[in-house]
């Protein structure tokens, strides 16, 4: 089973360590985190189950590990854990381009790239972007990110948030941007949180009210999907869809597949095990503006069902 690797980028002070701390504290899956500065991660002593060289194991099954000079070595060490983590999160250097880390992570065995998330300080981003020593460093951090999350938004004024959004749009029109919600990163992480059949229980019901600044929608496919139509549908989803994740059956043989979309990047991979009945479910996580019509867009992906055209939604 391949482990999803999420890369967390962002300049110094953007809140990466805070987000990682929160993630480790509240994790519902076994998450392994590779961090730049081991000393900065302030893990509650009560949570710590064991310490070994450069690695802290938590009582909730998570581990936190120092990212050495060689990313691959760090990932290999995590993959070899027993049991292996369900999710790996890598903190990119505050001056690095997180996409470069993502490229290297993709070379490693036993893992696949989930998404590149870049944090941007909702208050300070425009000023940092104007700094003569830093502007290109910040540009590179968002140039190839899948999603940009605005941190410290609770401290920022509406005007500051608008200015940061405008600065980001100026760098990359169409870049998906959302506020980092109080519950932090978990809703934005990939497949480890989508076990086949798990979402069926209505954890995120399509009619659930908007929660925590994100909107969740669930779509259960009534039958197999067509590969090309699904790709078209995924590409047609609006910017307000930040993430999509789940499972479907594809083609005339109804082959199980994992489906993920982070920002504009789509991943469709065969799933090695049969899906339980009713597990063909896709979860969409979006900004509060995400329209119900996105469900119609997905319906258009159904395999050879002329009657399955969406009702009233965009195609």
């Amino acid at each position: 089973m391949s482990i999803p690797v999420t890369i967390l980028g962002g300049f110094l002070g953007a809140g990466k360590t805070t987000a990682l701390n929160a993630l480790l504290r509240q994790a519902e899956t076994r998450i392994a985190v590779l961090v730049n500065d081991f000393g900065a991660v302030n893990i509650d002593a009560a949570l710590i189950a064991a310490r070994q060289s450069g690695m802290v194991s938590l009582s909730n099954g998570c581990v936190c590990c120092a990212l050495g000079p060689d990313l691959g070595e760090g990932i290999a060490r995590l993959v070899a854990l027993d049991p292996p983590p369900q999710q790996i999160l890598v903190e990119a250097s505050g001056v690095g381009d997180p996409w470069r880390i993502a490229q290297l992570a993709r070379l490693e065995v036993g893992v696949h790239l989930d998404a590149v998330l870049t944090l941007a300080d909702a208050q300070r981003f425009p000023a940092l972007l104007a700094d003569r020593w830093l502007s290109d460093t910040l540009e590179r951090q968002v140039a190839r990110a899948d999603l940009v999350l605005l941190s410290h938004a609770d401290l920022a004024t509406e005007a500051e948030i608008r200015a940061t959004r405008a600065a980001l749009a100026g760098l990359r029109p169409g870049l998906p941007v959302a506020l980092l919600p109080p519950e932090g990163l978990p809703p934005l992480l990939g497949a480890a949180r989508v076990q086949p059949g798990r979402e069926r229980a209505g954890r995120f019901h399509a009619d659930a009210p908007t929660a925590h600044g994100f909107r969740h929608l669930l779509w259960t496919a009534p039958g197999p999907l067509d590969h090309d139509r699904l790709m078209r549908a995924l590409e047609a989803l609006p910017e307000s869809v930040l993430r999509l994740k789940g499972f479907c059956r594809l083609g005339p043989k109804a082959t199980p597949h994992l489906v993920q979309r982070a920002g504009r990047r789509v991943e469709l991979r065969p799933w090695p095990e049969p899906l339980p009945a009713g597990a063909d479910a896709l979860v969409l996580i979006g900004t509060p503006e995400m329209p119900d019509a996105v469900l119609g867009t997905l319906r258009a992906a159904l395999h050879a069902h002329p009657e399955s055209h969406p009702r009233g939604g965009p195609t």
């Binding site: 300049f11 110094l12 505050g94 001056v95 690095g96 020593w133 830093l134 290109d136 460093t137």
Partner: peptide
């Protein structure tokens, strides 16, 4: 060619 890389940020 684009400018090179900070190995540490100036503030750091």
């Amino acid at each position: 060619a684009p400018n090179g890389l900070w190995y540490v940020a100036p503030s750091e």
